[in-house]
Write a protein that binds this DNA or RNA. Sequence first.
DNA 1: AGCGTCATGCTAGGATCCAAGAATGATCGA
DNA 2: TCGATCATTCTTGGATCCTAGCATGACGCT
Lengths: 233, 233
Amino acid sequence: MTTDTTKADEIALRIEEAIVSGELPPGSVLRQEQLSERFAVSRTPVREALRRLAALGLVSFVPNRGVRVRTLSRAELREAFLVRAELESLATELAAPKLTPDDLAELEEAEERFSVATQALRARPRDDDERWRLTSDWVSANHGFHDVIYRVADAPLIERLAKSARRSFSGHAVWAPGGSEVDALYERNDREHRAIIAALRAGNGEGARALARAHVLHSYELLVHVLELASVA
Amino acid sequence: MTTDTTKADEIALRIEEAIVSGELPPGSVLRQEQLSERFAVSRTPVREALRRLAALGLVSFVPNRGVRVRTLSRAELREAFLVRAELESLATELAAPKLTPDDLAELEEAEERFSVATQALRARPRDDDERWRLTSDWVSANHGFHDVIYRVADAPLIERLAKSARRSFSGHAVWAPGGSEVDALYERNDREHRAIIAALRAGNGEGARALARAHVLHSYELLVHVLELASVA
DNA sequence: AGCGTCATGCTAGGATCCAAGAATGATCGA
DNA sequence: TCGATCATTCTTGGATCCTAGCATGACGCT
């Protein structure tokens, strides 16, 4: 068994997963020892993993006092979306001239899944467990759509940074659905995906870029709406 | 003595400094032991520092085979500049409405220093040592100008990511000056700084944004020119 | 009774130790 | 003489141990 990855890396991924899934909520303190026993390793690789996550901005170190999962202020949340809007629109523009028919088909398929997830979410079951599962589906379908674009753009650095910005707020995504006002926003999100596809199909890089930018900023509005509704509840 | 920073952090900064200064050139392998004795600590904090730098993209880990200072391919170099162009233009736009007269004065002062450094560099002494010092001055004067904008924009995440993109190629900056063709590019760089200032003074955020974007992309052209000249020599 | 100080316990940071994997060079065979 | 294989050495990755700093609670003083 030749490990071409180190334990610290694997653990970093698993902790990251736990953070973005919301299992480790923002603000919670991470004890090195309990992480080490959870993953059945010593504290050393755990600490290295935490260093990595700290550099990514997911957790913050307080010397001699441990690490805690980063909480984003409203301003930071906004910033993260602004960054993502710029990087994603750039990626979309880069992707436009490279798009093959196969890519286009894949993109449409991803959009189809997203559309289904959106409708399912709008049906909004009262059961909390079901709701959580559906929002989780919705989020990953959404990511799936955007990931196709990143792949086609073939720009590793941009992809890395954009996803890092995306991750930084996924832990905040309670994504509690709201009323008809929020429904309209979900609907718009879906429509915008199709518009981006249309622009890409037409080979209109500039247009796709502008659409992608607006789309991400609109997603921010959606998230803010949802967060406000959640905080009132 | 209450250390409000940890040794791993300090060492990460010092290694980073050594990398961007060119002391540790791209491609060189870093031995944990010699780093640890150089900084008079054990290997543990060194490794944590390296993890951090790896997450920042400055060095790359090869499991069981150590770390090496990252070399950027031409494509990655381009990507880094594209990212910086987007983020810096965004920061410029954000800075525009926040700019106070004091900020403007500071910006003009920074530009003055940059202008002086540019002229000094264009005088181009034959002495290698002097040339190295002047290019180093030029680079930091340039950074100084842009840093004012970042500070005014007051957007920590954007600043962090943009500087990270900037750092990723500073190690490559041999910045060997070329002929009159390159001189024109230096000259343009200087002019563009002034244009950005003018737009900011006029409160024209959109204009400043577009100028900043073009400016960074032009800097890329300058760097590529210089690198080509250097590789021929 | 309230506040300040000190002692004890707990957790993180750093050092050292051990094991496992890769490179290098020597030796043996063709 | 050239190549392949095996042993040795070097370096990294991980575990354990030690130390130092923060926190918390008890005790004493005002």
